[in-house]
Write a protein that binds this DNA or RNA. Structure first.
Length: 553
RNA sequence: GCGCCAGUAGCUCAGUUGGAUAGAGCAACGGACUUCUAAUCCGUAGGCCGAGGGUUCGAAUCCUUCCUGGCGCGCCA
């Protein structure tokens, strides 16, 4: 709808130039068309005349007059007006709007999908929590946002892969192994002194218990081998927990990428060699450094320490280089905001390799402050005092939890109060939206009971949808596809949440004021058709965000 | 000290990427169920968009200097 109008405006502009009623010849790449806040200003509005004022050296309103004259006779519009400092306001014909209902019906579950991504290969890497303990609430936020960003990109026509990077090679994994081994000895009656920096949480004891039944007491093994076995066992077990928790949260990955496999395949050395070849790294004080300062970082960074071991950064560099080797045009990383200091060095690395820095987009997820009755929980894996994601989902519910995380922009902090989330669950916005969907289903049931079948497009007489509220609903439905596109291009899935709330509000209001099933058959059919279009869009949007669309509540 | 993010109604947050009179939910107050589900709707009230300066036809939005809160600044992961 918007695009058709845009084409008409461009044609009019060209016409003005060929008639020499305008002379600058300036043709903007994209004609800005916005939906005015004030409905009196029409369905769409453009500032074109104002942007042309300078090159044309004429008053904006004069230019607008010329453009409007050229636009007369377009079948799309009822009314074209010049307003304010030089806006041109368009009101589209009702017939034009009702075409949207036809589109929704023919496209069904695909309504809202588009091809603006043109199949560009995008990878979204998210969660990627260390496999040393269960996911907590902060991971949950990153998980939901990453998943929703991936979904929204898919809907906009990008070719998306979801990946989880498993840090199964570092010191943390060693620490987990040592912790398990100590707990194992403790189980066998030894008195041990558990170190400060070990994992103190009770789940480590669970892991030790399970290991004992599967592998025995490990008394025959030498210490290093025992730790290695404990590490591998722990990582495997914890990853299963993580995968399971994410699954109950509705999240699955296309690929689990092991850091250890990078070393096993010698990838780290190979990628580092490429950097050396390009003169991007250098040796100093027995260590190997990456020259990131040349590309905007404030310090050069160590890849290989003077003792010969690799830094975490080394495998990260290799990992990201390999992402592009795998053919992704764009790579999106979802990180906790506490890692923001790593962005400059990662971008520097890519720039050095000749990639534009925009090829890597890092979404920073701000912290979640978990509260209960207004009191903060102290988080921290080692202290053992944390609430797992699993517990939160069980307590608050999957849909409410996802909705809550998606409601705010990811770069603002979030207070998550468990008691509040539960207490407010009856007027939690997620139920508000889902209720709208359930209500349409209920109308359908009642229609069926009184023998009214769901009408087909060709049976509808749209002249029976003459109420202002009905037209407004159709306009809101028409906005869904562009909402998805803007959410995708800006990596902001919360836009879809706000869209859903607006659509549900409009529907509830309409529902309260008018009846769908009335005596007049033609009106009933038209309204039934309209509310089912609403239902389709609600369902598509909910599904896009991994939320359920219940038929009754 | 340097850097990143945030600061909008009493609270939690939106604000179409620079547009017209700054919006919603919760909380407060007043109304609406013999009619398709009241998990709903209608109405009232609530603002120095953290502060100052700048950019232009036009700023909550852009540039700058401060203030407040959070998070980073290792040959840790």
């Amino acid at each position: 709808m918007k695009e058709q109008l845009r084409l008409a405006i461009r044609a009019a502009l060209d016409q003005c130039y060929s008639e020499e009623s305008l002379n600058s010849g300036v043709s903007p790449d994209e004609i800005q068309l916005e939906i005015p806040k004030n409905p009196d200003h029409g369905d769409f509005s453009t500032n074109l005349a104002m942007t042309l004022a300078k090159p044309e050296r004429k008053a904006p309103r004069k230019i607008a007059e010329v453009l409007v004259a050229a636009l007369q006779g377009t079948p799309l519009c009822d009314k074209i007006e010049i307003a304010g400092p030089g806006f041109i306001n368009f009101r589209l014909t009702a017939a034009c709007w009702y075409e949207v209902l036809g589109q929704i019906s023919t496209q069904g579950a695909n309504y809202g999908r588009s091809q603006v991504g043109e199949g560009t290969k995008v990878q979204v890497e998210f969660v990627s929590a260390n496999p040393t303990g269960p996911l907590h609430i902060g991971h949950g936020r990153g998980a939901v946002v990453g998943d929703a960003v991936a979904s929204v990109l898919q809907a906009a026509g990008f070719d998306v892969q979801r990946e989880y990077y498993v840090n199964d090679a570092g010191n943390q994994v060693q620490t987990l192994g040592r912790s398990i081994l100590l707990r194992l000895r403790e189980l066998q009656g030894e008195v041990i002194e558990f170190p400060e920096d070990g994992y103190q949480a009770p789940y480590v004891v669970d892991l030790a218990t399970k290991l004992q039944t599967e592998h025995g007491d490990l008394k025959e093994m030498i210490e290093n081998e025992a730790i290695e076995l404990c590490s591998r066992f722990g990582v495997k077990e914890v990853l299963e927990w993580i995968e399971e928790d994410l699954k109950t949260f509705g999240i699955t990955f296309d690929n689990w990428y092991s850091e250890k496999s990078l070393y096993d395949r010698d990838m780290v050395d190979q990628e580092l060699a490429k950097l050396e070849e390009k003169g991007l790294s250098f040796k100093e004080d027995d260590a190997l450094w990456l020259r990131t300062t040349e590309f905007g970082d404030d310090k050069d960074r160590v890849l290989i320490k003077s003792d010969g071991s690799y830094t975490y950064f080394a495998s990260d560099v290799a990992y990201h280089m390999e992402k592009f080797d795998r053919g992704f045009n764009r790579v999106i990383d979802v990180w906790g905001a506490d890692h923001h200091g790593y962005i400059p060095r990662m971008k520097a690395m890519l720039t050095g390799l000749g990639h534009p820095p925009e090829d890597l987009e890092v979404l920073l997820i701000q912290m979640v402050n978990l509260l209960r009755d207004g009191k903060p929980f102290i988080m921290g894996k080692r202290s053992g005092n944390f609430v797992t994601l699993k517990e939160v989902i069980e307590e608050v519910g999957r849909d409410a939890c996802r909705f809550y995380f998606l409601m705010r922009r990811c770069d603002s902090q979030l207070d998550f109060d468990l008691e509040l989330a539960k207490q407010q669950s009856s007027d939690n916005p997620v139920y508000y939206v889902q209720y709208a969907h359930a209500r349409v289903c209920s109308i359908n049931n009642n229609a069926a009971k009184s023998g009214v079948a769901l009408p087909k497009l060709e049976d509808i007489d749209f002249s029976h949808l003459e109420l202002a509220e009905e037209l407004a609903l159709v306009k809101q439905l028409a906005r869904f596809p562009e909402t998805v596109v803007s959410a995708a291009l800006s990596y902001e899935p919360h836009r879809v949440i706000f869209y859903l709330q607006e659509l549900a509000a409009q529907f509830h209001s309409y529902y309260n004021r008018y009846r769908v099933l009335v005596d007049d058959h033609a009106t009933t059919q038209a309204r039934l058709y309209l509310v089912n279009s609403v239902r389709t869009v609600l369902e598509n949007a909910l599904q896009l965000l991994g939320l359920s669309a219940p038929e009754q509540m």
